[in-house]
Amino acid sequence: MSMENLLDQPFVHWMSSGAQDGDIVLASRIRLARNLEGIPFPQRANGEQLSQVVSQLKSSLCDLNSNEQSDYMFIDLEKLPLLERLVLVEKHIISPDHAREASNRAILVKQDTTVSIMVNEEDHLRIQCLMPGLNLVKAFTSANQVDDIIENKHALAFNEELGYLTSCPTNLGTGLRASVMVHLPALVLTGQINRIVNAVIQLGLTVRGLYGEGTEAVGNIFQISNQLTLGFTEQEIIDNLYSVVKQVVDHERTARGGLYADTTDMLVDRVWRAYGTLKYARSISGQEALALLSDVRMGYELGIINEGSHCNFNELMVITRPNFLQKMSDCPELSGNERKKLRAQIIREKLTNKD
């Protein structure tokens, strides 16, 4: 994938269909927080020190690309306008925090977009692997391979008692943050979501919105992740998250089945109304689009609608976001109304092309 395709094409690997529990689990992510030894953490480092981190990580390109199946791009965030950085956030390539500050920041991205390494985010580097469906083990294996390559080349901040040293104390130890992005419309519709979220939190996990910490759960999409890394092995963290997510998936499937059995006409009507609005609307907001896409995706999974696909609706999640829309347009800056019209037009075309 070229730099242009990375920014212009909505599809990335985590949107692929056919993965385990892909009807409910959109993607699995493993993120490893690491820091270079002898250099202050990004919040305390000066410009020269941050630049040194960028240079050192850029020098890892040859090592990362030594495997014939790997092909990484180095992207200097200072050379990307804010709009393009925010597009990368909407595609889950980088975090919102990484996009806001571009000075002495960079990313290394694998061509298939499964791996991205954020340089000078909260830590010197954050190795992220994103896989479709419930695929935590494969994501960890991939992220761990990258971690080994980096650690063979660079001395990392590590303490025998505390493990990997990180900017945030909650990441001490393994530095591992595992998360799963789930679509839970039936639990929301049946009013069970608060009980499920509270139960998940009591099990030592956290629940966040579409783009992680500090974001809303729009489109009935939530991220479930571990809270602590110190005192746990990587396997324990992954096993615990996997077990809890499987229970959440079972609850969502049960809720969907109950909705379909108890309120068939109402549910079918809701799904087709959502589909009809998306297919024929001439103006639509981002929030409304995601809410309607959520209903349509559930309808697809329940067999109410036979048009479209997982990839189709996952792509629309990105296409309907404000920054991606702006990037697609020929206008220097879209007004709110122009954005709503363009969003509706693109959704109509996408759905029509799949009929």
Rank of each mutant, 00 (worst) to 15 (best):
M1C: 07
M3D: 09
L6Q: 06
P10Q: 08
V12F: 12
H13M: 05
M15V: 02
G22F: 01
V25S: 15
L26K: 04
A27D: 10
R31L: 15
N35K: 07
G38M: 06
G47R: 07
Q49F: 12
L50N: 07
V54C: 09
S55T: 14
L57M: 15
K58N: 15
N67R: 08
Q69D: 14
Q69Y: 09
D71H: 10
D71Y: 11
Y72K: 08
L77M: 12
E84I: 11
R85C: 06
E90D: 03
P96T: 00
P96W: 04
H98D: 03
H98M: 07
H98L: 07
A99S: 00
R105N: 13
A106C: 14
T114W: 03
E122V: 02
R126M: 00
M131C: 12
M131F: 14
N135V: 01
V137F: 06
F140I: 06
D148Y: 04
D148F: 04
I150G: 13
E151H: 10
A157C: 14
S167N: 02
N171L: 04
L172G: 02
G173N: 05
L176I: 01
R177H: 06
V182I: 05
P185N: 15
V188I: 15
Q192M: 14
I196P: 00
N198M: 12
Q202M: 14
L205A: 13
L210R: 01
L210I: 13
Y211I: 04
T215C: 12
N220F: 01
I221Y: 08
Q223W: 05
I224L: 15
S225L: 14
Q227R: 12
L228R: 15
T229W: 09
T229Q: 13
G231C: 07
I237K: 05
I238C: 05
V244F: 02
K246R: 15
Q247A: 13
V249L: 13
D250W: 05
E252V: 03
T254P: 00
R256W: 04
G257S: 07
R270C: 08
R270Q: 11
S283H: 09
S285Q: 00
A289Q: 06
D295R: 13
G303S: 06
I305W: 08
N306V: 05
H310I: 09
N312T: 13
M317Q: 08
I319W: 01
T320C: 10
N323G: 01
F324C: 11
D330R: 00
D330H: 06
L334W: 05
S335P: 03
G336Y: 01
E338G: 00
K341F: 04
Q345P: 07
Q345E: 13
Q345H: 10
R348Y: 03
E349K: 12
K350F: 07
L351M: 10
T352L: 15
